[in-house]
Amino acid sequence: MYEVLEDFAQTNNLRETSPGLKLFIGTASILLCVSSPGPVAPLLVAASMTAAVLALAKIPARFYAKLLLVPVSFSLMSIAAILFITAGGTVLLEVPDLPLAITADGANLALLLLARVFGGMCSLYFIALTTPMTEIFDILQRLRVPAVLIDLAMLTYRFIFILIEEAGQIYRSQVMRLGYGRFRESVRSFGMLAGALFIRTWESGEALMLAMDARCYDGRFGMPGETRPISVPALACGLFYLSAVLAVSLSTGGLVII
C-alpha cells in the first residue's frame, strides 16, 4: 500500500506542478474545512479535491475509493458518541428502554463533523498522491524546520519501506506455519514478529551508521534541491478555487476562527 502511494506520488500527472503550490492548496483547503461552520464548504472541498486527484492527477478511481475506506471505522466511533451526547432541537430517534436519543442538533453536529473529516481526508490524500515525500522535505527545509528533525524524518522514511518488507516476510512465514491459528498463538506470534523486527531494525541501523561513516558523514545530509517555478495559470486556478470555497463558507454561515 505504501509503495503504491509513493509510486503514484512519483508518477501522477501533477508531478511536474510546483510542490509548494500543491502543499499550499492542500493545507489551505484543510484549514478552510476546519473553520467552516456549515457542511457545504467541506463537502465542496472534498468534491474538488477528489476531482483534482481523479481528473488532473489521473489516479485510478478504484484505488482512490479503497483509500477513502481506510479511515472510516476510526471516525464512526467518535461520531456515534457525539450523536448521543448532544441534545437540543426535535427528537429524531429514541433508543427504547435507554436514556439515549438522537436529536436534530446532535445530528447536525455529526453531519458537520463528517463533512469536515471527509474534506480533510480528501485534501490529505491530494497531498499524498501528488507530492513525493522528498519534495515535502525540501519545502520543510526552506521553511527553516530544524535540520536535525528533517534528517531524522528522512532516515525514518527510508526505513519504513525496508521494515514493511521484512515485517511482511516474517508475517507470511508465520501464517504458513499456522502461527495465527488461535488467539494465544497469535499474540505470541505477533510478539515474536515485533521482537525480531526490532532487533533486525537495530542491526540495520548500526550497519547504516558504518556505511555513512565510511562515506564521510559529518552530521548533515545534503539534499539536491531542484526548484520548479510556480506557473502563473496554476497559481491563479488554485487561488480562484480557494476563494470560491471561502465564499461558499462565508455565505453558509461565516467563518469560525477561534
Binding site: L152, R158, G219
Partner: peptide
C-alpha cells in the same frame, strides 16, 4: 553521532508496528 540512525530506525519501527 550514531544516535541519529538508531533513533530513525526506532521511529520507523513504531510506524510499522502501528500499521500492523
Amino acid at each position: 553521532r550514531e544516535t541519529l540512525p538508531l533513533l530513525a530506525v526506532a521511529g520507523a519501527f513504531v510506524f510499522v508496528l502501528s500499521s500492523l
